[in-house]
Structure formats: C-alpha cells, structure tokens
Design a protein around this nucleic acid. Sequence first.
DNA 1: TCGATTTTTGTAATCGATTACATCTTGTGA
DNA 2: TCACAAGATGTAATCGATTACAAAAATCGA
Lengths: 356, 356
Amino acid sequence: MSRKRWRAVKEIRIADVARLAGVSTATVSRVLSDPDKVRQKTHDLVMEAVKRSGYIPNSTAQKLRTRRTMNVLVIAPRLTNPVFAEILRGVDDELTQSGYGIIIGNLDNRREREARYVDLALSRQVDGVLLLTGYIPEKGPRSMRDSGLPIVAMCAAIHEDGIPNVVVQDREATRQAVEYLARLGHRRFGYISGTLGSIIEFERFAGFQEGIAAAGFSQNDFLRWEGPFVFSTGVTAAEAFLQMKDRPTGIFAACDESAIGFIKRVRAERVRVPQDVSVIGFDGIEYADYTEPTLTTFRQPLHELGCVGADVLLKLIHNEMKPDDWSIRLPVMLLERETTGPVLHKDYKSLRRSAV
Amino acid sequence: MSRKRWRAVKEIRIADVARLAGVSTATVSRVLSDPDKVRQKTHDLVMEAVKRSGYIPNSTAQKLRTRRTMNVLVIAPRLTNPVFAEILRGVDDELTQSGYGIIIGNLDNRREREARYVDLALSRQVDGVLLLTGYIPEKGPRSMRDSGLPIVAMCAAIHEDGIPNVVVQDREATRQAVEYLARLGHRRFGYISGTLGSIIEFERFAGFQEGIAAAGFSQNDFLRWEGPFVFSTGVTAAEAFLQMKDRPTGIFAACDESAIGFIKRVRAERVRVPQDVSVIGFDGIEYADYTEPTLTTFRQPLHELGCVGADVLLKLIHNEMKPDDWSIRLPVMLLERETTGPVLHKDYKSLRRSAV
DNA sequence: TCGATTTTTGTAATCGATTACATCTTGTGA
DNA sequence: TCACAAGATGTAATCGATTACAAAAATCGA
C-alpha cells in the first residue's frame, strides 16, 4: 500500500469537463459563471458533465486570473477577548453571505506579530483588511497601506484619509458613565484603564475626563489605575483600592473583564458592591450578565459593528463608495444592573462597622 | 481627482525585477526561494533590484504553480465559546510559525453553515482542515473527505480511518468527577448535558455513567438535564432543579458555561454553593476563576491541544506521517476550587430552614 | 432562399509565478 | 592551453482558470 494512497484523488480540470461535454473550456466557464450567455441545450449538456465528473473549479486559478481573492483579512488584538470574538461573528455573517472568506490575524496582544500580516496584504492574498487595532500594521519600513488595499477600521478609530471608521460612541458613553455615577451621589471616582496608548483607551479616558468636568469635579476627585484590557488589570486595581484609606465609591472600568476582576477581588475582602462601591463596566459581554452581582455596563452593538464594518469594506472593494464617505459611530446602551447604586453613607467604612 | 486614485498602486511583477537586475525571471525566482543556487554577485544584484522596486511575489500565482495554498481551514462550532477561541490561539501559534495562514469556519452552532466550507476544501483553497466539530462536514452528497485533503479532528474525536484525533481524556475525567463527588458524600447526582448528539457530549455522558456505576450507584441516582454548551442550558437546568422536592446535591456540568449559568440561577434563590449543592464544571475557561464562588472544574490543555493538533496536521500535509499513526489523548486536570464541598446534612432544606 | 444581424461557440492570450531542460560560464587538472 | 565537469543562467512550458476576439451558427425579414 502506497504511503500516499489516501491522498490520491484525481483532480478534475475544466478541460476534462469540456471534453466530456464536447465543448470548449470557454463554454464550460461561461455556463458556470454566466449561464445566460449560452444556449439552454449546451447549458444542460455542460451541467450534466459537471455533475458526472464532480468538477469544482480550482479557486487559485480563478483568483489569479480574475485578480480577486475573495478573502478578507481581519486583524484583532486578541481573539480570546469576547468583544473581538463577537465582532468577528458579525463580520463572518456579512462576508459569508457575499462569498468572502476570512483570514484571521490574531496579534494576541503582541505587536511584533503584525509583520506577518503586512506580508499577507502586500502579497495580495486578500482583497481588503478589517483592522480592530486602532493603528495600521507595519513591517520595518513598509506599512499595510502600501498594499493599496481597502482598509476599514472598526472598534478603534484610525484617523487617516481614506480609511473609514466604524466605531461606537466610546467617549460619549464614558462621559455618561461619570454623570450617571454622579447622579447616584458619588463624589470620589476611580478609573480603571485599558491598554495604555491604545486609541480606545484614549477615547474612553477622554470621555471620563469630560464627564468629571461636566459634573463639576476636578482632577483631584479621581484616581486612575493602569493596565491592559484583561481581568487581572481589575484585580490589580482592586488591590490598590483596598490599600486606600479614603476610597473612591464610583468606579468606571474601561472594559467588562477588568470590572469583573475588580469586583471579584474587592468582594473577597468583604467590600460590598454596590453598597460600598459602585462599579460600571464597558462592552456588555455575555459573561457580564452571569457575574454576581450582575454588572452594570454599556452594551456595545458588537455583532452589528461587525456586520456594518464588513459591509463598508465590501463597498470599498467593489468600488461602490469613496472611503471618505463613511465614518460611522454606533450608539452604545447603558445596562443598569446590580453593581451600581446610590451612595449610602459618606463614609461607608463606618457603615460596615455598624452593620457587623 | 479620479475615484479610483487611492487604489492606484503599480503592481510589480517578477519580470520587472528581472529587467531591473538584468537577469531572467528564473534567476529572480531562484534568488528568492533557493539562494544557494545562484552566484553571490547575481544574488546581490537581484536583491538590490527587489529592494529598489519593493517587489513582493504574488502569492496567488505561487499557489497555482506550486499547488500549495499555505492555508489551513479551521472549523469550529462556535467562535464566541472561549474553549474554541483558546484552541484557536494554539493553532495560530503553531501554524504561523510554519508560515501557514488560518481561514476560519465558524458554524455558530448552525450545521447548515458547513456547506460553504465543503466548497472551500473541494476547491482547494486550503492544504488541510482542522475539525473541532466531531464530524465531517457535508454538502448534499459530497463530504469534505472527497477533497482528499488531510484532516485532523481536535477536541471531538472522529472515528474514521485516516483521520487522527487530538482530544482530551473527556471520559476518564468525567468518571473522576463522579467519583470525586461521591467521595465528598454525595448520593444524588445531576448531569447537565452539552449539545445532544455531539461526540463530546457522548463521551462525557458515557464517563458520567461509568462513574455512577463505578461508585456503586444506579441510573435512579441521577437526573439529566439537556441543552447545548451555553450558559442558558445551566439556567434552564437550575430552574428544573429548583422545582424539585428531593434535589440532587452533586452536579456535573458538561461545560463551564452551563455550570456558571446553573450556579448563578440557584444562588438567586438563596441556594448555597457548595453548602447546599456542589457543582463541578468542565473546560477550565478563564471566567471560571472569576465566578463567585470560583468554579471547581477540569482544566483542558486548550492551548496545547491547538498546538498539537496543528502540528499533526502539518505533518500530514508534508507527508511526514501516516494519519493512522496518531491519535493523541491529552490529560485534563481537576481544579478543586470553591463550588464543591462535602455534604453537610442529608436534608439540606431543613438546614436552610434552621439557618433562617 | 439569401444576406444581414444577432447569438452562440471556439481559439488562444493572459494572470504571475516556478521549474525542467537547454545553453552558456566558469573552474579544474593534465 | 584545452577538454571536460560542475555550476550558473536563460528559455519556455506549466499550473487552471477567464475572456477578448474571431469564427461559426442561428435567426430574421424581404
């Protein structure tokens, strides 16, 4: 038994089908791609041959000839982050419908991994790129822009000519978050950041500062804890929080994962949420509805974001629009759940003491 | 200003480089793919021309000629499931290293979506397929096997000749779970299933039954609640559980998400975990460490699973092994955390009453 | 029935690389 | 210096489709 036998599958080419049907390859091609161009009788003849032979066109040859790969590259900072996974679902729904495939570029939060995807774009393995990163990947002196491929920025904006942005109203939402906390009576705030230097973090922090100002507070009325968009950032923030004498009572976390990490950690030290401290997250991941207490947060329309972004990219690919026509900001929605509440006492530590 | 101007990027072909360097295209190709075959002087000449022109080979043309796409298709039941996302990370790490790309096939728990990916394989857009589904996708009369492509089943076994399995010891672990609960004194059990008909569910339930038998119990000593591998399955199970008079005290959930859903729901009704009911999950997703209480579960080596599976597939693609040589079962590890504990009272309802 | 027009089909170039084979250079030993 | 082997390079076929253009067939009106 040959070592290769299991792989031996005879390849059927268009020429084989043509011979079988007694026509030229051109006719077979036409039957398959533009049936109206051929006589009904020929059409049936060819289709019969296609069916009998089980012919499926070699898509690589098609791609070379038509100069369309029917693939789109999606670059995400981290695939295990449910936010990106959910966006990807939307992208997938939209692209699959149009016959496009997705090649994933997972950076896993390591920027050096982007080089590989620059090559991918430059070597024309895709027709367009969706960036969830907030910046254009580079490899040495070359940028992905050099590929001339249509690029759409999603989730995190890229402010460059020719690149449409499909994002959410981060800044507005974060401002609202502060106002919401202020309305509940909070006077001292905490801000748990996302990945420093990222555009999303920039927007959300800007919104936070605006909210602080709008509510009549100053820079002295809040603290900022720093770290990437992961659980452990919240845990670290909580540990700093727990050390404090004069703790903030209204916490905004730039992502749900951090918020969850924070809550988990402070509750372990018998700090009550929301009685002792209110926490509000951002993202609206599914898991935020399964924490205890359930997380108050802003729900991003993640699936829609994916659909819309993919749709814009397809329009660019098909030259149906100019890139500057589009910059979409989808609204987010505040989900008031259980981790936020009114301030009970000015000094909640004395409250706790009396409760024990 | 032309509507297309922003896309106008002159394509540099190998012939351009050849002309620039004053050599033939064959030489350019050799310099790039097998530098030892050319004189140093020519090599430098060509590389200079490559650099000056910014040439990057058109990968579609390469693929057509070499008949290698350098892409692998990964089919997963649901991308937003952290289990698959984590496996995908491992796959990505391994494949990227070898220069392969990943095309994702997300079924989103809808089997009808698989047809598209059968086409993808049949039209030779990929060199191999990783299946996380436990079955071979079909489209009408044609199966993905007809493509003759190497296939590796991961996570969920496929028992067919020529398909290596890279899975975890589901069955053994589930058996252990029951034994563990029995050792803690539990006598009435609950089993929250995964997707019915799936091979993973089959294995885990088989292990559960084995465990029941091994611990000396019978079919009458446990209940089974059915549903897919999602949070809400656990919630539904919890609702059935809450209706019962004579509740089980030891619950095994076929996935962490269901376990988390279950716990969340019963705690809302003041059922204590683990004092009133012990719950053990399966998967070891990151969230399971952020629930309250933290979930006792079996940690699957998800990242490793991905790496190993990808590695096996690469070996198949490169004909470095026969598919029947490999079926790997990775061990899982019990993480004893906070949702399991000894049975306190035979009738925990009376306990609760006295506590109130 | 014939010629003009329209529709259908076929021939061959093309996409952009790789590579078998042929040819030309270079190097080596006598 | 010459013959011959080894090494470097060039020529042209090839991968498998699509499609411009040419040629053939069908349709139509007079």
